[in-house]
């Protein structure tokens, strides 16, 4: 459930996510206005309409399941991160207003998930993996696939966190089910993003190669940051597993601030279960899969190095 319907989020979460999304969008509007060229207006409209139409296209994943494109990485890779987030926001808005896919009150949360986490976060992953693999059509497509995979997981974690903070579902099942479902969807998203971007790179290189590859010097930084992130995650796992109550307390405090009134369904029902585990496990899982897929891309590289 990438588009959260109305009714699943509590008032504080609705307000908080709306404020966060509005802040990022305001920044995005300002940034994109600074660099908006005349030619870009039709491209943004087409991107919006395309993501929307593509979301109607269900993609068979096998075993009776299907998923549709979220489009975060695809859009930001073609029109840039700031305009891309605005396009994704427009898609969320059309989905909510015209077709009731995702609630009106949940527009803020859905924008935060799909545009900011999926689009902006996906773009960061794209840029990072581009920095790692370097120039070339195949590598660009590989980087986009990795980023699409990671961004979909990011969306899933964000949805799960919002549901848990709302007190709708305990965090553990939310992460397992919503996050797990997005893990499956992520495979389709990566494949679709790679296929579409690959075709676009062949047909319209001017559009698809808009994002510059970071120079070689920054690539070393990329490796450093990746190593640091994995190291931090490993340390965090150790700390979290020895003292699981830190995160629990933090979540409890958030729940207490937001608070459902007492006597209805109680406070957050998950306050007893250790919360540190799944969060950190998810983060480590993301990093490991990222490293694995990136390694695969890297291995596939020598075959067509000077393309």
């Amino acid at each position: 459930m990438a588009h959260i319907p109305d009714g699943f989020l509590s008032a504080p979460v609705v307000a908080g996510t709306a404020a966060a999304a509005a802040a990022v969008l305001a920044l995005a509007a300002q940034r994109s206005r600074q660099r908006l060229e005349e030619r870009e207006a039709p491209v943004l409209g087409a991107a919006t309409a395309f993501v929307f139409a593509a979301q109607m296209l269900n993609f068979p994943l096998g075993a009776g399941t299907s998923a549709h494109l979220l489009g975060g990485v695809l859009v930001t890779a073609v029109v840039g991160p700031w305009s891309g987030m605005l396009v994704l926001f427009a898609v969320v808005l059309v989905q909510a207003l015209l077709f009731q896919d995702g609630g009106i009150a949940a527009v803020g949360a859905n924008t935060l998930n799909l545009a900011v986490c999926g689009g902006g976060g996906g773009f960061v992953l794209y840029k990072l993996s581009l920095g790692l693999v370097g120039e070339g059509r195949r590598r660009r497509v590989g980087a986009a696939a990795v980023a699409a995979f990671g961004s979909t997981l990011l969306v899933g974690c964000a949805v799960a966190a919002e549901l848990a903070l709302s007190g709708t579902v305990p965090l553990m099942p939310a992460l397992v089910i919503v996050g797990g479902a997005h893990g499956i969807v992520a495979v389709g998203e990566a494949a679709l993003t790679a296929a579409i971007l690959g075709a676009l790179l062949r047909a319209r290189p001017d559009l698809a190669a808009a994002v510059a590859v970071p120079p070689r010097a920054t690539r070393r930084w990329g490796y450093g940051v990746l190593a640091l992130a994995v190291g931090l995650a490993v340390v965090a796992t150790g700390v979290a597993s020895s003292r699981p109550d830190v995160l629990t307390a933090a979540l409890d405090r958030l729940g207490a601030v937001g608070g459902e009134p007492a006597g209805t369904a109680g406070s957050l029902p998950n306050s007893r279960s250790p919360i540190g585990g799944p969060w950190v496990a998810a983060a480590v899982g993301v990093l490991i899969t990222f490293a694995l897929v990136w390694g695969a891309v890297r291995l596939a590289r020598p075959r067509r190095s000077r393309s």
């Binding site: 509007a29 409209g45 309409a49 427009a90």
Partner: peptide, 19 residues
């Protein structure tokens, strides 16, 4: 933001054509 409404208005014209 103006960008969003412009994108939406163009998307509105294109949506069903694309679908």
């Amino acid at each position: 933001p103006r960008v969003v409404t412009t994108a939406l208005s163009l998307a509105y014209r294109l949506l069903y054509l694309l679908m």
